[in-house]
Design a protein around this nucleic acid. Structure first.
Lengths: 137, 137
DNA sequence: GAGACGCTTGACGTATACGTTAGCTTGGGA
DNA sequence: TCCCAAGCTAACGTATACGTCAAGCGTCTC
């Protein structure tokens, strides 16, 4: 099965939960919660969680997805896509293609909604600025 | 105080809650819930809710805002902006300008996140399609 | 005039995403 | 050696956004 040999030289940077939370601006509770939901799986050293750079990037992905309104349960699916994407089995590939296509469409629809809202907000904003300008003139 | 005279000719189209729900693809419960939260205030005819075209458009706004991830409590604030936007008092205008500017920035940030995610999803999508092609090729 | 609808108001239930104690364990410094 | 700070699990609490009865009223129809 290839190389199970861990080529981690001693140089790999590791993080405790406190550091990771601090770095990403979230609570430790949040990180543990994501672990419960199966989104991140840190190693354990005597019970304590130890995070790698990879875990950190995963967390970034999670937070970005969340910021655009994706539910944690869906994020879980997509993290699996990211992971399995390299596998070659036809069923898997079809699954990935289908899921990503659907999500791409959903996100583009969302962008359109945002653009519409932005246009309206800008109208209101500019209108108010103009009236304020005249008032102060 | 202008014209309080209701120029509603008999032609104004009105809706019952069932029609409104159907038309917007939401449940009646949802509509009543939004009313509880102060987002829409239909007239009553013998206890029953009657919605105007204006109420319907308001509901559209609400649903669009929701679809881009705005909380109902925030939507309430913005609906008030839409309404008060015409008022001329300086404090009001400043409030509107400030709030809209903040929301515009937030939405543009969200768009950037979406674009990033879209780029990654497309990479995964295209990669998977290519591998699938070779496999079938 | 008796159902059968349709609508109304509670009021409790549910899913999501954490916050907040509470109590136990453990490694490290004074 | 004693004790604190940091981490852990377990469990209950909170906010948001509805879903789902339950029970009552008004009206239309047969």
């Amino acid at each position: 099965m290839g190389s199970n040999i861990k080529t981690d030289s001693a140089s790999e940077t590791l993080y405790g939960i406190a550091e990771l939370a601090e770095a990403h601006g979230v609570s430790q509770r949040t990180i543990r919660f994501y672990e419960d939901k199966g989104l991140i799986s840190p190693r354990r050293v005597g019970g304590q969680r130890v995070y790698t750079e990879h875990d950190s990037k995963r967390l970034s992905l999670i937070l970005r997805a969340k910021s655009i309104g994706t539910k944690l349960s869906d994020i879980r699916t997509f993290l699996e896509l990211y992971g399995r994407e390299g596998e070659g089995r036809v069923r898997q590939l079809e699954f990935v293609i289908e899921k990503t296509a659907a999500e791409i469409e959903a996100l583009e629809a969302k962008k359109r909604q945002i653009d519409q809202t932005l246009a309206e907000l800008k109208l209101i904003h500019d209108g108010a600025r103009e009236r304020l300008g005249r008032r102060r003139g």
